[in-house]
Structures are given as C-alpha cells and as structure tokens.
C-alpha cells in the first residue's frame, strides 16, 4: 500500500530535495530519510487526502530538523534579512529593456543560469517557487506543505519570482542575451 502510493513520487521528492540541499548526495540522504519516516508514520496518514503534499511536508520538516541544524542557521533568518526595499521592483529596473525583450531573454537563458539564480534566493522563496512552478501545486497545497497561511505563500512566491526575474534580467544583459543591449534605454 505504502510502496504503491509513495514510490511513484520519488522524482518529485528528489527534485524538492535537490532544490533544498543543493547537492545530489544530501538530496539522496534526505529522500531516503523521508521515505523511512513516512513509512513509520503511514498509519497516521489519512487515506484519501493528498499523499504528495504529505510526503513533501515530511521532506521539508526532515530538512529543517537535520540539515539546517547542521548548517547552524535557523529556518526563518534569511527572510528577515531581506527587506522589501532590497528586493526592489523588477518592473522598474529591468536590465533588459522592453518586456518582450525580457521574455525573449529569459526564454534563451541556459538552465544552469536559472538554477544558479534560484539557488541564491532565500530558501523560503525558493521552496514556494519550486512547489508552484515546478511541481504545479496550488497555493493551498503549498500552504499545507510549508505550514504557513496562504497569504504568506503568495507573498513568498511573489517576492521569489521578482528576485529571480531581476537576477535573470541582469544576467541576460551581462551576457548580451536578448534583443536590446544594455544602456539602450
């Protein structure tokens, strides 16, 4: 029963683990621990509810309890360090010129650049963006996984995407990717 329901989700859990730990070896460990914990707690899982969200929540909590402890950094600290003004407004200072040029540039960026940018944004933002844009979760499901109100999910998602967009725009301008050259506006 557990195996049939949980094993098909291993790619998705591994993706989440990679997104959090940022390296394959830790991601491997994290996924294994997640499965063991989930198996042990499976009796408490309410059949018919969202097993994917349940497993992702276990993975997130395992990560916070073990890996973050090892890094000696509390989960929430990154957010508090980032004030709204530091994030800025992507719309008003886009490095690539017009919006269509920006879309064109982002579309042509190498995956490695997108990954690097994603890995450099605060963890809470990264997780929200990952769950929404890679896993296609609804805001309600993300709220369940992250154990935060939906409003917090929306704000993390918005700020994460804005940061990402800004970084990718800058990267594209530096690399000369896109239609307009830097300084044209």
């Amino acid at each position: 029963m557990f195996v049939e329901q949980a094993m098909p989700l291993i790619d998705s859990l591994y993706g989440h683990a990679m997104n959090l730990t940022r390296n394959p070896s830790d991601a491997n460990d994290l996924v294994q621990e997640t499965y063991m914990k989930a198996f042990a707690a499976f009796a408490s899982f309410e059949q018919g509810t969202n097993i994917k969200a349940w497993l992702h929540r276990i993975l997130k909590n395992t990560f916070i309890n073990q890996y973050r402890k090892a890094q000696n950094r509390p989960f929430e600290s990154a957010l508090e360090e980032l004030e709204e003004w530091q994030i800025g407004d992507a719309e008003s200072r886009t490095a690539v010129g017009s919006r269509s040029a920006e879309a064109e540039a982002i579309d042509h960026l190498p995956a490695s650049a997108v990954k690097d940018a994603l890995q450099s944004i605060p963890e809470e933002f990264r997780m929200a963006v990952f769950l929404a844009d890679v896993e296609g979760y609804s805001y309600q499901e993300i709220a369940e996984i992250m154990e935060t109100p939906t409003g917090t999910v929306m704000s993390r998602l918005h700020r994460g995407r804005r940061l990402l967009r800004e970084m990718l725009g800058e990267y594209a301008a530096e690399q000369g990717i896109g239609l307009t050259t830097k300084g044209a506006s």
Partner: peptide, 25 residues
C-alpha cells in the same frame, strides 16, 4: 507582455529544475 514574462519565467524554472531520481536511490 507582462504576463508573457511570467509564463516564460515559470517555464524556465520548470526546465531548470526537472529532476529524475537516480536509479540507485
């Protein structure tokens, strides 16, 4: 156009983060 940027951004993230769990795992 603003919406297009959003769509492209989501697609770029999805492309960059698609993972397959290693067979060993």
């Amino acid at each position: 156009d603003e919406h297009k940027v959003g769509v492209v951004l989501s697609a770029a993230v999805a492309r960059a983060c698609a993972e397959t769990a290693p067979e060993d795992l």
